[in-house]
Design a protein around this nucleic acid. Structure first.
Length: 263
DNA sequence: ACGCTTCCCTGGAGGC
DNA sequence: TGCCTCCAGGGAAGCG
């Protein structure tokens, strides 16, 4: 379930490993995960260039390869990165594999094949073409900005937070978590929210996203305490108020919220 | 035009 | 034990 905080951790992992390494070869690349470019062309574009910088926007990771453009990765639900030297460290579902001149490899591992591999000449153009809104961290903490982007929305606040064209980076897990912290029901309709609730959501967005990045949730799991995630089960006890956690489908996704302190 | 549903994909869990 | 179905949830396509 890599969402914004998890992809941020992948970016930091990439920066600490593959960045500045020169690509010797692309050793493997599943064509069914590739979009808009062939494996051969991608290989040509990457080979001989070092990665010079990375950018994360929402759930997308961009790695600049030479002067030609950017390797673009989306982690779907089960995607992850692994940088290794010894073959016994290789993960089990490699969909793309780069070999560097230093002998190390970077594997893009993705069990359920819902990830994406692509190549872009410009990050800005890619964001525009894929109709991505501003990164959720830019909106976090800013109630005015949030209010502005919710303008005209009639559906539930949960689907609005998950709408990548409104703001990029929040998925099912984090939308629930943000609304849990904000004390707002996920199924509440956007036009029915009070100003105070929108302010709480903006504030919770910052707390949850930054908190998850800071404790590197993607690598280390969820720490104990007041997170909803470890309690995502119907009938569980709410870690904040002791109330009951309820499961409900909202626009096709399983949602969990506290019956008592939310709403 | 918008929002909801369905589909893709794989592996783990649970039922019988 | 083995088989079947369901569920997880990214994005995109389809539908009303």
């Amino acid at each position: 379930m890599p969402e914004l905080p998890d992809v941020q951790v992948f970016k930091e992992y990439f920066d600490a490993t593959a960045l500045h390494q020169k690509v010797a070869a692309i050793e493997k690349c599943r064509h069914d995960l590739l979009h808009g470019i062939s494996a051969n062309r991608l290989g040509e574009a990457l080979q001989g260039h070092p990665f010079t910088t990375t950018i994360r926007h929402g759930k997308w990771l961009f790695a600049r390869a030479g002067e030609d453009g950017w390797l673009v990765l989306h982690f779907g639900m089960t995607g992850t990165l692994r940088y290794y030297e010894k073959e016994d460290k290789a993960p089990g579902h490699i969909r793309m594999l780069l070999r560097f001149e230093n002998g190390y490899r970077l594997a893009f591992d993705c069990t359920r094949k819902l990830g994406r591999i692509s190549f872009a000449e410009s990050v800005e153009k890619f964001i525009e073409e894929h109709d991505l809104g501003p990164d959720a961290l830019e909106v976090a903490g800013d109630a005015e900005k949030l209010t502005e982007m919710l303008q005209g929305k009639r559906g539930s606040i949960k689907s609005a937070l998950m709408d990548q064209s409104l703001l990029a980076g929040i998925g099912n897990i984090y939308s629930d978590e943000i609304l849990f912290v904000a004390g707002v029901r996920p199924q509440d309709k956007v036009p029915d929210l009070w100003g105070k609730q929108r302010r709480e959501i903006a504030r919770a967005m910052e707390e949850v996203l930054r908190g998850a990045i800071d404790c590197r949730v993607g690598e280390k799991g969820w720490p104990g305490g007041k997170w909803l995630v470890p309690h995502r089960e119907d009938g569980e006890k709410c870690p904040r108020c002791g109330g009951r956690i309820k499961k409900e489908k909202i626009s096709g996704r399983s949602s969990y919220f506290c019956r008592d302190h939310q709403g």
